[in-house]
């Protein structure tokens, strides 16, 4: 190493080292991130990988994991020819179609109606979002008793006000499906409402005023200006509801248990039943892999089509 002439004052000091590869303290930021990352990995990725892993095994709950038999793609092959899986998938799609269509329409309509600071609107807004704060299990219980054939309010008032004979709501395939759709609408319309009203209130008022000056009437303002401007918000709300449809099962578990038959058995409830009632954990895992793929595919499709990030309003 070539020595530069040394200043007598610093000669006694050790030679300066080559610039260290890492600045001191370079670990500090990671130290703050790592705990969160670990939780993410543990809580999020581990179950996903475990499901993927188990989907290749025949494993019954209660037996040690080591005794599970590796059966390759057998679970998947079985799944694609299993009429039950297709049945619950169809139920799930129908459920998703009706709930999301009605919730989006209703939520957006209410948000548009209550957007203006009318007297009492804020009170109504608060009351309206209460269903969101109720745990799904409690929602299931409430509506199970409301729909109860003998002691339920719904039968009582239908009889008292309209003279309609008592219905066995949760014992009839079509009525039960109607009941879970209604319950879902009750709980989740407020979610759409809140998101949309926040979006509407964040719209720059001058743009809306400009459309008034340009001669847009109330409807034109909504469909040509306001809704297009909150498109990204609508897409995200739609996406979250879609994912929830494939994920949620507590309400049906409590209200109908998926019955009668499989008329209200959503995909996730079916997975639950497979895993913990018939104890076929490997097969249940394979179906949940299907669920992940479906949700992923739908989300990607929607995000690609709508590209909400690119559509941010930046006027």
């Amino acid at each position: 190493m070539a020595h530069a002439p040394q200043d007598p004052l610093t000669a006694a000091l050790p030679m300066p080292m080559a610039k260290p590869r890492f600045e001191p303290g370079f670990l500090t930021p990671y130290a703050f991130i790592i705990p969160a990352l670990l939780v993410m990995l543990g809580g999020l990725l581990y179950p996903v990988f475990m499901a993927l892993y188990l989907s290749f095994y025949d494993w019954q709950i209660g037996l040690p994991l080591e005794d599970a038999d590796f059966i390759g793609m057998t679970n998947f092959a079985r799944m694609f020819t299993d009429p039950q899986v297709w049945e619950v998938l169809w139920v799930t799609l129908r459920f998703g179609f009706w709930t999301i269509t009605i919730e989006m329409t209703l939520g957006v309509a209410l948000a548009l109606l209550l957007e203006k600071p009318i007297r009492g609107a804020s009170v109504f807004r608060t009351i309206f979002i209460l269903p969101l704060m109720v745990s799904p299990v409690v929602v299931g219980l409430i509506w199970r008793y409301l729909f109860d054939a003998r002691i339920g309010w719904i039968n009582y008032y239908l009889g008292a006000w309209f003279g309609i004979d008592p219905q066995v709501w949760l014992g009839d395939a079509q009525l039960a499906f109607f009941a879970i759709v209604l319950t879902d609408i009750w709980q989740w319309t407020p979610f759409i409402f809140i998101i949309v009203i926040a979006g509407l209130q964040a719209l720059p008022s001058e743009v809306v005023e400009a459309s008034t000056i340009d001669g847009a009437n109330w409807w034109q303002q909504i469909f040509l200006v306001k809704l297009p401007m909150i498109k990204s918000i609508l897409v995200i709300a739609l996406l979250m509801r879609l994912i929830d449809v494939f994920r949620g099962m507590e309400v049906m578990l409590i209200m109908t248990g998926g019955g009668p038959g499989r008329s209200t058995e959503l995909l996730s409830l079916h997975i639950y039943n497979r895993a913990f009632n018939t104890q076929q954990l490997g097969y249940a895992s394979a179906i949940s892999v299907l669920l992940i793929v479906i949700v992923f595919a739908i989300s990607t499709a929607i995000l690609t089509m709508a590209n909400p990030m690119k559509n941010k309003s930046d006027v």
């Binding site: 005023e209 297009p228 401007m229 006027v315």
Partner: peptide, 13 residues
């Protein structure tokens, strides 16, 4: 009337 706003108020979409 026609009006021009401070923020321009263009329709972003």
């Amino acid at each position: 009337i026609a009006m021009v706003f401070q923020s321009y108020a263009l329709y972003p979409h």
